[in-house]
Amino acid sequence: MGISEDAHWRADPQGIVDGGNGLFISARDAAKFGQLFLNGGIWNEQQLVPASWVTESTSAKNRGAGDGTGSYGYQWWMRSFAPGSNNTYATPYAPANYDVYYAFGHAGQFILVVPELDLVTVFTSDCSSSYAPRPYFTDYILNAYMR
C-alpha cells in the first residue's frame, strides 16, 4: 500500500504491541487504510483483507459506552451522523443521516468512512477533547457532499 516506513506501533518494555492504540501514522497513510476498508479490503485490485473481515469488523458487536461515540465492532466505531448537527454551520440542505464507521484515537485522531458517499476523511489533531473534530466533519465535510 506504500505505507511510510516511519509508521509504527508503540510497544511496552517487553516489545509487546496491543494493537488497539499507540499507532503513529501519517494522515495520508491513515486515509489509505480507510480507503482499503471502503473498498472491501481491496487495494490496487488485490484483496489484502478478506471482504468478510471488513464486513464483520465494521458491524456493531456492542452498543458502546452510551456517550454518543456509537456502537463498537472490531477496532471500528459506528454511528449515524447528520450534516449540520453540531450547528457550527447552518446547512442549506434537507435533513439527512449517514451511517459511518470510524477509527477514533486520543486527542482527536479519526479515520471516518462513509460508504454511501464513497468518502474517507482523516483528522489528525492534538485537541483537549478527543471529540473536537467531529463538528468539522458533520457541519462542513458532510455538507460539502450534500446535493
Rank of each mutant, 00 (worst) to 15 (best):
G22Q: 01
G22H: 08
L23I: 14
I25D: 08
S26K: 00
A27G: 07
A30E: 07
A30N: 11
F33H: 14
F33Q: 05
F33S: 05
Q35T: 07
Q35Y: 03
Q35R: 15
Q35I: 05
L36I: 01
L36S: 04
F37H: 05
F37Y: 09
G40K: 12
G41M: 05
W43M: 09
W43P: 02
E45P: 01
L48H: 10
L48P: 04
L48K: 15
L48R: 10
V49P: 07
V49A: 00
P50S: 13
P50C: 12
A51L: 10
S52G: 11
S52K: 03
V54I: 08
V54Q: 15
T55H: 10
E56C: 11
E56Y: 12
S57F: 12
T58S: 08
S59V: 03
A60C: 10
K61F: 11
N62W: 15
N62F: 11
G64C: 03
G66H: 13
T69K: 13
G70P: 00
S71E: 15
S71A: 13
G73V: 00
Q75L: 14
Q75G: 11
A82S: 12
P83H: 00
P83N: 04
N86A: 14
N86Y: 00
N87C: 14
N87F: 07
T88K: 10
T88Q: 14
T88I: 15
Y89Q: 08
A90V: 15
T91M: 03
T91N: 11
T91D: 13
P92N: 11
P92I: 13
P92A: 12
Y93C: 02
A94Y: 11
A96L: 15
A96W: 01
N97K: 05
D99C: 01
A103N: 06
F104P: 14
Q109N: 10
Q109P: 07
L112F: 07
L112I: 11
V114F: 06
V114M: 02
P115N: 12
P115T: 00
P115D: 08
E116V: 06
E116C: 08
L119W: 07
V120T: 05
T121M: 15
V122T: 11
F123G: 01
T124A: 01
T124H: 09
D126L: 15
D126K: 15
D126W: 12
S128L: 14
S128A: 15
S129H: 12
S129K: 13
S130V: 03
A132W: 06
P133K: 10
P133E: 10
P135H: 06
Y136S: 10
F137P: 04
T138I: 05
D139W: 00
D139Q: 10
I141K: 04
I141V: 08
L142F: 00
A144P: 00
A144N: 05
Y145R: 15
M146Q: 15
